[in-house]
């Protein structure tokens, strides 16, 4: 049968007003349903007829999911909070600025108004072969079109590839990992909290999924503990153009430095693997070291160890190295 893209087919739209209602609908419709947050990822798939649903469960009407609340030990961000709200939130700006900065680098003002933080961390990969509907591993097939001797793979993975070489496109994900955020997920069995770094999964765990979310799950809250409140933060995103672009590589870090010595650290990198990578090894190596150029440079080198570039993405190795270095040193200015 012939293929046509770019015309959204009909589906049934449900607009529950509470989380329980959403979960009931998701269970009722099973695999043929999909959760809708801001739609910045979902509508692309539907419009292209590459992924199809019969029911769309729109969470926009669940007011509690849109709120950002300061708590006794941090801040709870409703998964439906628009990215622009996250950017402007005073509590986040003051104490967890790395997240505000990361959210502010997503796409464009219009997309930040429409796109949500829950959607930003749950979004699918942007591998252009996969999104064009090619029957690759991630789409249930048995080939990776992005990893052949002629493939166009400058945006693809240098680390953690396993058959699939797609990368995580999220800008907020590395920031959330650097903040030790926890993802609150609800389904009909109840509520669970997942560490941000384990919320994201690579192809070795499940080649068709980017996160641990499964049918019937609703990501309700992103919980930021106050552990890193007011730490020394860094976020940087490298792109082909300065707006409306996914990261070639991005980096987020949180450092506690006392007397010029790094006491504690979190560093996460996006755009290099199917999931945003928390750099445990690098964190361990720099704790106790002076916060200087030498430590930063060594950390950069360590970060890219084991990188396996594809035909066109070898530049990501020095880029990731440099960004990790800058995440510790800061942007060098003389």
């Amino acid at each position: 049968m012939a293929v046509i893209h770019d015309v959204m087919p009909a589906y049934e739209l449900f607009q529950p007003t509470d989380v329980e209602g959403a979960i009931a609908l998701l269970n009722e419709h099973g695999e043929s349903a999909r959760v809708l947050a801001g739609g910045m990822d979902t509508w692309d798939w539907l419009k292209d007829r590459t992924k199809r649903v019969t029911a769309l469960v729109d969470l926009a009407g669940i007011q509690e999911l849109r709120e950002i609340r300061a708590t006794a030990d941090g801040v709870d961000i409703g998964a439906l909070a628009p990215l622009s709200t996250v950017v402007k939130d005073p509590e986040i700006q003051q104490n967890y600025s790395v997240l505000a900065e990361a959210a502010n680098k997503v796409a464009t003002p219009q997309i930040r108004n429409q796109g949500t933080i829950g959607g930003n961390v749950s979004q699918d990969t942007r591998c252009w072969y996969y999104r064009a509907g090619w029957p690759c591993y991630r789409a249930g097939g048995n080939i990776c079109y992005a990893n052949t001797p002629a493939s166009l793979n400058r945006e693809h993975a240098i680390l953690g590839a396993d058959r699939c070489v797609a990368v995580s496109p999220s800008d907020t994900a590395p920031a959330l990992i650097a903040l030790d955020a926890r993802m609150v997920v609800q389904n009909r069995s109840g509520e669970r909290e997942i560490d941000a770094a384990t919320f994201f999964i690579g192809p070795g765990t499940d080649i068709e999924q980017m996160t641990v979310l499964r049918t019937g799950d609703v990501l309700t809250t992103i919980r930021i503990p106050n552990a890193w409140s007011g730490a020394s933060f860094y976020f940087e995103k490298v792109t082909d153009r300065k707006s409306w672009d996914f990261p070639l590589v991005n980096v987020a870090s949180a450092l506690r430095v006392e007397g010029g010595v790094i006491q504690d650290a979190r560093i996460a990198v996006g755009g290099v693997a199917a999931k945003p990578l928390r750099l445990f090894r690098v964190e361990q190596a720099i704790i106790g070291q002076p916060a200087n150029e030498e430590t930063a440079a060594a950390a950069g080198e360590l970060a890219v160890r084991g990188a396996e570039p594809l035909r066109l993405n070898g530049y990501k190795v020095p880029l990731m190295r440099n960004l990790v270095k800058r995440s510790i040193r800061g942007q060098e200015t003389v």
């Binding site: 464009t108 252009w128 072969y129 064009a132 079109y145 052949t148 002629a150 493939s151 166009l152 082909d240 153009r241 300065k242 707006s243 409306w244 672009d245 996914f246």
Partner: peptide, 25 residues
């Protein structure tokens, strides 16, 4: 433009992939 050399199929059909300049550039 990005066109896969093996299959001859265009991969940058939309603005976010074909990348004309933006306000911030």
């Amino acid at each position: 433009w990005a066109i896969d050399p093996t299959w001859g199929v265009h991969l940058s059909k939309r603005i976010e992939a074909t990348k004309p300049p933006t306000m911030l550039d």
